[in-house]
Design a protein around this nucleic acid. Sequence first.
DNA 1: GTGGCATCTTGTCAATGGCAAGATAAGATC
DNA 2: GATCTTATCTTGCCATTGACAAGATGCCAC
Lengths: 184, 184
Amino acid sequence: MTSVRGYHHGDLRRTLLAAAVEAIDEAGPTALSLRDLARRAGVSHAAPAHHFGDKAGLLTALAAEGFDRLAEALEAADDLLAAGVAYVDFAVRHRAHFEVMFRPELYRVDDADLIAARGRSGAALRSGVATLSTDDDADTDTDALAAWSIAHGFATLWLAGALPDRVGADPHDAARTVLRRLFG
Amino acid sequence: MTSVRGYHHGDLRRTLLAAAVEAIDEAGPTALSLRDLARRAGVSHAAPAHHFGDKAGLLTALAAEGFDRLAEALEAADDLLAAGVAYVDFAVRHRAHFEVMFRPELYRVDDADLIAARGRSGAALRSGVATLSTDDDADTDTDALAAWSIAHGFATLWLAGALPDRVGADPHDAARTVLRRLFG
DNA sequence: GTGGCATCTTGTCAATGGCAAGATAAGATC
DNA sequence: GATCTTATCTTGCCATTGACAAGATGCCAC
């Protein structure tokens, strides 16, 4: 990262991803414009294409980064309830990443980095469920799906602003209360 | 609906909404193009603007229609489990509506028709939860949120293609199994 | 130092959303 | 029935965008 811009930016790839997060936080992934990102980074309108090919390429990188960070967050949780809360927490704190991750029509689902990162997230989820599982595999699968569904649903509804006001302003607390209804 | 097009289409508003559902089913709400809808309906590129103002106006109408149909589906359910399965079923069968409904950045959240329709959906959900509630209001709220979250989460993950293959191809059955984990 | 290669810029094109102005039809009023 | 009004649809236009092609710049290995 050079402080004084020459012809070469120095760290454009990372800068563009950060700008994308900002832009998506402001107006959602739909309104994302590569040219806007270029302006934010102070480069020409065609510079992003070199690093990401096209819009889908950039969002693929963003989604992969998101699945990686989600995996880290889930791995740091002690039990399933903590993992569920961490999942919601991740969605709220990394809204831009989260919104892209679960909109596969926006990126390349066959990207190798992405598949690997998504695999890490999935493994972290399953290992969280395993902490309270019985020996029955079918039950474990159902438990994992139910846990994932309720955490994902709560996070999604929260982000969509669909939840009633009485739920409060702290997603952390509200999520714990709701998730306990399944896990407790 | 006139079979032979004159200068006036006759039922353009409804035709455009139907075309929008088709287009969204094919490529998602992000790729929706008003000009493409106009071509599908056989009218000029500016015709949609008269009926909906702009893209957000069209998606507002679509979201309101969706909330109305969702309310009907939920009202037809006998108990909470059936309502949950109906919720997932609605999402899968009316994918285009569902995807727009929970993406408020795409439409006008202050639209009167939309707010009314969303209210009907919410009331239907709450009355479904009431069938198995205790006297405690706080518990009822938590139950409603948990039920909504797990159904919404499962539906969303299903639509995103995020669920592992072993879940199967029938969302109806898979949803019942998972939802029973909370409701049973 | 020099050739190769990654990085970035400039220029261009088709497609889109949205606006303005005009054309056409249908209905209301007399 | 004639005329006025309004709703509906068309044509024309402009700024913005994504994508591509060709060229400019500078880093790095040899």
